[in-house]
Every structure is written in C-alpha cells, then in structure tokens.
C-alpha cells in the first residue's frame, strides 16, 4: 500500500517538476511549485518523517509561495 502511494506521488512530483519548467506564465509556475511542495509533504509522511513534513508544509507550500507572490506583484507580470 505504501509502495503504491509512494510511486503515485513520485510520478505526480515528476509531472509537477516538468510542468514548472515548461509553463510560460510565472504565476502558474508559482502555484504548481506550491502543489509540488504539498506532494512532498505527503511523501515525507509516507517516509515516516513527520517533523520534516511539518516544516515542508509551513515553509514550502506556505512562506515560499507568499514570498514569490510578493516579488511577482512588484514586477510587471509578463509571460516569458
């Protein structure tokens, strides 16, 4: 059961990683990066590291996304 869950999450992580690279919109890249961190949170829990999962949930999908959005709001939003 845990192996299947890990494999599914890893495949989704690879898809998210490629999507961050391939997208043309910076806002979409930030949101997909946030979901990447959320998938990593679940993977840490499956790997029995709840300490790292807590930090990843707070830093990865919370603070980093907010800081990226703050920077993006200061720049002109233009697709690459």
């Amino acid at each position: 059961m845990e192996t299947i869950l890990s494999v599914v999450i890893l495949i989704l992580l690879i898809i998210a990683g490629i999507a961050i690279d391939r997208t043309n919109d910076l806002l979409v890249a930030i949101i997909v990066f946030s979901s990447f961190s959320f998938l990593m949170t679940i993977l840490w829990l499956v790997l029995k590291a709840p300490d790292v999962a807590l930090t990843e949930a707070a830093i990865g999908s919370g603070i980093t996304t907010l800081l990226f959005l703050a920077v993006l709001s200061k720049t002109e939003r233009k697709s690459l």
């Binding site: 709840p50 300490d51 603070i63 907010l66």
Partner: peptide, 21 residues
C-alpha cells in the same frame, strides 16, 4: 512531539503574513 521552534515559528509567521496581505 514532531515539530519544534522552526516549524511553529513558520506557522505563526505565515499567519502574520496572511493578516498583512
């Protein structure tokens, strides 16, 4: 328990940033 000063402080900081936004 799992967690600690860094994780909890990040949660409080996130709440403060949400309030600011």
């Amino acid at each position: 328990t799992p967690g600690g000063g860094f994780s909890g402080g990040a949660f409080i900081g996130g709440g403060l940033i949400l309030y600011t936004i």
